[in-house]
């Protein structure tokens, strides 16, 4: 893993806000009486799919990290 610690790998990952969060915020600001168009619904369904997939991917990563073996540091941290 290029000598990087798990935290460094995570920090280096490309990050974006889950699109479902942004869409949920948009929808919550609308009045319920303003009905969504067919296109709006289709778009929302796509976002929901992407958002759910992103959660799954993160969950898979988390499980993989939990399974990884502990690795000793190459130096003694300050204070030890």
């Amino acid at each position: 893993m290029n000598g990087k610690s798990p935290l460094e790998i995570l920090i280096d990952e490309k990050e974006q806000i889950n699109p479902a969060i942004i869409l949920a915020d948009e929808l919550m600001r609308r009045a319920a009486a303003e009905l969504l168009s067919v296109e709006d619904v289709a778009k929302a369904e796509r976002v929901l799919e992407i958002g759910a997939r992103e959660i799954e991917v993160i969950d898979v990563h988390r499980k993989a990290f939990l399974k990884s073996q502990p690795t000793p540091l190459s130096y003694v941290p300050y204070g030890f």
Binding site: A20, L23, A24, D25, L36, V41, A44, G51
Partner: peptide
């Protein structure tokens, strides 16, 4: 709102509600 899983639930609920209004 910064919980993605809760946001997905919210979007799904609002969509289902909107579909019923339509």
């Amino acid at each position: 709102c910064h919980n993605a899983a809760a946001a997905c639930d919210t979007v799904a609920r609002l969509l289902a509600e909107q579909q019923k209004y339509v």
